[in-house]
């Protein structure tokens, strides 16, 4: 493939204000349409890495480009437009519990409207239909008017995915999306992400703890340890032993 990568890290460093190293000299490319899984111990920098892509975290040095545009200097409107094309799924779902599923899903669309229209709830008919279709894709259309906190964990995570679909994203970042779910709902959520990757060509980047899940869903696995990129292989070349080494503390890969 000669196509340009959708995301590119070039010598990215992140040092927190208290001196902790978050990311250290990270360089790699993510091709369009890839299902990338990031593995590593807690605190290895997986969440930080993910959040630098939509600038929820700022980097200290280096450069990140998305669709060949450097994103470091975006602010205000340009930053919001960047975030609009990058969906994000969280471990804790981050739904607005007291609001209806419909409102939660529509909130994924707010960056397409001026602020005053979002406050008045003036969504177009087309977008309300889009909300229903998004929910259909995660098999939850019947929950449209249910309050978000009345749903189970797995259902909430699927609503979060429907919210992300409203952004019409090119990239989905998922930060430990199944860490608080049971095995059955885990499969549903991961299958949904896989379907969006295959059917819509959305580039998906997932942080995972589970080696088994990583091997089942990934096109490619990268490993982080203490903020450094210590492993990067296409799924065909990944062995069980490699992955175990990433999780073995203190050992060099």
């Amino acid at each position: 493939m000669t196509q340009a990568p959708i995301i590119s890290f070039k010598g990215v460093n992140k040092i927190y204000n208290n001196g902790t190293v978050g990311l250290k000299d990270i360089s790699f490319d993510i091709p369009r349409g890839q299902f990338l899984v990031v593995v590593g111990l807690s605190g290895a920098g997986k969440s930080t890495l993910l959040r630098t892509i939509n600038r929820m975290h700022e980097i200290t040095s280096g450069e990140i480009t998305i669709e060949e545009e450097p994103i470091n200097d975006y602010k205000g409107q340009s930053l919001r437009l960047l975030r609009r094309k990058i969906g994000m799924i969280f471990q804790g779902f981050n739904l607005i519990n007291r609001s209806s599923v419909e409102r939660n899903v529509l909130s994924g669309r707010v960056s397409y409207y001026p602020t005053w229209k979002t406050i008045c709830g003036l969504f177009t008919k087309a977008d309300r239909e889009m909300a229903v279709r998004s929910l259909q894709r995660v098999n939850l259309a019947d929950k449209l008017y249910t309050r978000a906190d009345e749903l189970s964990g797995g259902q909430q995570q699927r609503v979060a995915i429907a919210r992300t679909l409203m952004q019409d994203p090119k990239i989905i970042l998922a930060d430990e999306p199944v860490a608080s779910l049971d095995p059955l709902t885990t499969a549903t959520v991961m299958d949904t992400l896989q379907r969006l990757n295959r059917e819509d060509g959305i580039t998906v980047i997932v942080n995972l703890h589970s080696v088994a899940l990583a091997r089942k869903y990934a096109d490619r696995i990268i490993g982080l340890r203490a903020g450094q990129l210590v492993y990067d292989q296409p799924i065909a070349a990944v062995t069980e032993a490699d992955l175990n080494r990433i999780y073995a503390e203190g050992e060099q890969v």
Binding site: N54, M56, L79, R80, L81, L82, R83, R84, I86, G87, M88, F90, G92, F93, N94, L95, I96, N97, S107, G108, V110, S111, T118, A160, R163, Q167
Partner: peptide, 11 residues
Amino acid sequence: GPLEALESVGA
């Protein structure tokens, strides 16, 4: 959490 989600949406 919900604030983080809305921020990531570009609100």
